[in-house]
Design a protein around this nucleic acid. Structure first.
Lengths: 223, 223
DNA sequence: GTGCATTTACCGACCGGTCGGTAGGTCGTC
DNA sequence: GACGACCTACCGACCGGTCGGTAAATGCAC
């Protein structure tokens, strides 16, 4: 009856998660009722509850799914990079791509509903977030230690990085004036172009030869 | 019967706004009921409705109050500064002070409930936010035009500024390891210390003499 | 300064409606 | 005939908001 594959199992649940994520992303967790989620899945509420334990578990699963996607698409791609600055630059690029890209609903929910979950579920998600912060702090510390950037407070640097990147969901429009790539290039250069140690950054053409997308001096406002 | 002053008038309403702001800040707009707000004001719900038109108007008034505070404490203090870079630096300092300070509840609500209001009220608040973004864009543009910083895309720069500053409410703890002043100093230097034109920033000691709180090289990780 | 009309600030009770969640039945598939 | 998917029907609690009523303060004419 179907093309070689049954649409049940976890696949059905995943489509429910995605539908719910779309609604919750648009109207917030408390502002979205199980009735509405069920209707969007073309089901009754009781039918939805056949697949879902309760509303909080649904939110937790959405967040976990988003965290998995983030770690696969961002963290795992840059962990191996040896140079800490290159690791941070590429990490910012990928993270911006994730936030501006198509599958950003779950990530936005993680960001916006940062205080909605309680108890163990909250603690579990928070610990995964914390690991990311630590990853960034460590990279900044290492970059300072190696003299690759000037001395900065790692925690403040990490949260500045995160603020720039994760705030994007509040203002960026995919069909707007600026493309995701423009934002990405500009933002990476904004933070790291100015972090290079003066001695290196001073001599034009000498510093940061690796992956310098933007020429050191002439960054056109329209590029 | 009272000490020379009546506690009624708008003063009562303002205490209601502040109580409501505290609760909404803690549990979200949709997660806070009028019953709870009334109880926190030591009133019944009907009593609360004597002062308040409806829940949405209450949120709008809280946001307007926060916007007033922001414009008084931040924008109006830096508008007159002639040098665009100094204007931006001082603006960031004051904005961080506002977000980390005591009367940050209303501001946090403005940030977090950015999509809760609808219709005219939403449009009105959004226009006031937009004015701030434009203010920052203009300052960045001017700084580039005057050669005070290297060329950057003003919109991305403005939203990076905002992301760094406004993300703080998600992670900063007043009684934590880092003080508000530390965060402020580090963050200003992180963005603007690296934005100076290479020719100026290159020569150690020559660039950015104004308000350089952090010594160019040695910033202890524990300070 | 007394008496009275009016206003302010609040209350208990209640409205229609929606919330998250559940019990029990039906139906198609293996 | 067992089972999973989904339904109808319903639960108690709570939602935002309103009702008529009231005790106390205030304004004002005399």
């Amino acid at each position: 009856m179907n093309s070689g594959r049954r649409p049940d199992d976890g696949e059905r649940y995943r489509t429910i998660l995605e539908t719910a994520a779309r609604l919750i992303c648009e109207r917030g967790y408390e502002g979205t009722s199980m009735q509405e989620i069920a209707a969007a899945c073309r089901m009754t509420k009781a039918g939805l509850y056949h697949h879902v334990q309760n509303k909080e578990q649904l939110l937790f699963d959405i967040m976990s799914y988003g965290m998995d996607a983030f770690e696969q698409q961002v963290l795992d791609q840059v962990r191996h990079l040896e140079d800490p600055v290159e690791r941070l630059r590429e990490c910012m690029r990928l993270n911006i791509h994730l936030v501006t890209g198509g599958c950003s609903k779950e990530v936005i929910i993680i960001l916006h509903e940062h205080a909605t979950l309680t108890g163990e579920a909250r603690a579990f998600i928070d610990s995964r977030k914390k690991a990311y912060v630590r990853f960034l702090e460590d990279a900044f510390s290492e970059a300072v230690r190696l003299g690759r950037i000037r001395a900065v407070q790692p925690t403040v640097a990490a949260f500045s990085f995160l603020g720039m990147v994760l705030w994007i969901y509040k203002w960026f429009q995919p069909d707007g004036r600026l493309s995701a790539e423009q934002v990405s290039n500009e933002m990476v250069e904004l933070l790291f172009g100015g972090l290079a140690t003066p001695a290196v950054a001073a001599v034009p053409g000498a510093g940061a030869p690796q992956l310098s997308i933007v020429p050191p001096v002439a960054v056109g406002e329209k590029s």
